[in-house]
């Protein structure tokens, strides 16, 4: 199928190249979560250190927010138009910023890759040193905490994981909730 837009009422739908599969909402229930408040010190590599913090903990996945803080170096992706017929939109080359970056909003999912290793998915909004606004998909391995510590809150849970799996409808590898044995 050729990906295309469809107008339905006052909203646009986007029909991807792959066959849509039911159900349209995938969900699992977890009895409870464990809360963590993490403060990353200035100079810390965010992705590497966050994974170190989580190493050895008994959890399947986690969700949370960037509460406050800044970065001295940051890379993020925006969505761009591609030349692919089956995947006409994808992330472009990273946009790189340096110096005095202030986070104003952000969300994070800690999922699992196909080898069951922890995987970080993070979107955030931030202000550069000139006051310019930015927002997009963060490359956490390329973010260094700035002079303000970075405060992150996570809700860890067991029995259910956000697992990376290929998605035949969109042709992306995406995080799907799946039931797991307790870690």
């Amino acid at each position: 199928m050729q990906p295309h837009f469809e107008q339905q009422g006052d909203v646009r739908h986007f029909i991807h190249g792959g066959e849509p599969q039911e159900p349209r909402l995938l969900d699992c229930e977890v009895a409870e979560g464990e809360e963590l408040r993490i403060v990353l010190a200035p100079g810390t590599n965010v992705g590497k250190t966050l994974l170190e913090v989580l190493e050895g903990r008994r959890y399947a996945s986690a969700v949370g927010r960037l509460l406050s803080g800044g970065a001295s170096h940051l890379a993020y992706h925006r969505m761009v138009v591609t030349t692919s017929e089956q995947k006409p939109y994808d992330y472009g080359a990273p946009v790189v910023l340096d110096g005095y970056i202030t986070f104003v909003s952000g969300a994070i999912t800690v999922g699992r890759d196909p080898q069951d290793k922890a995987l970080l998915h993070c979107h955030a909004g931030f202000i550069d040193r000139e006051g310019g606004q930015h927002g997009g998909h963060l490359v956490l391995d390329r973010i260094v905490v700035g002079s303000e510590p970075l405060v992150i809150r996570l809700c860890l849970f067991n029995h259910v994981a956000y697992q990376v799996k290929p998605d035949s409808e969109t042709h992306f590898s995406l995080l799907h909730p799946v039931l797991q044995e307790a870690v």
């Binding site: 739908h13 986007f14 991807h16 849509p20 599969q21 349209r24 909402l25 995938l26 969900d27 699992c28 229930e29 977890v30 009895a31 409870e32 979560g33 996945s61 969700v63 809700c155 849970f157 259910v160 956000y162 409808e169 969109t170 995406l174 995080l175 799907h176 909730p177």
Partner: peptide
């Protein structure tokens, strides 16, 4: 309880959130 979910393409956030709560 936590409801851990993925919304597939063309699903509305608010309607989906309410549907997930109702289902659980």
């Amino acid at each position: 309880r936590l409801v851990v979910a993925r919304l597939k393409p063309n699903e509305d956030i608010m309607d989906s959130a309410e549907a997930l709560c109702a289902a659980h």
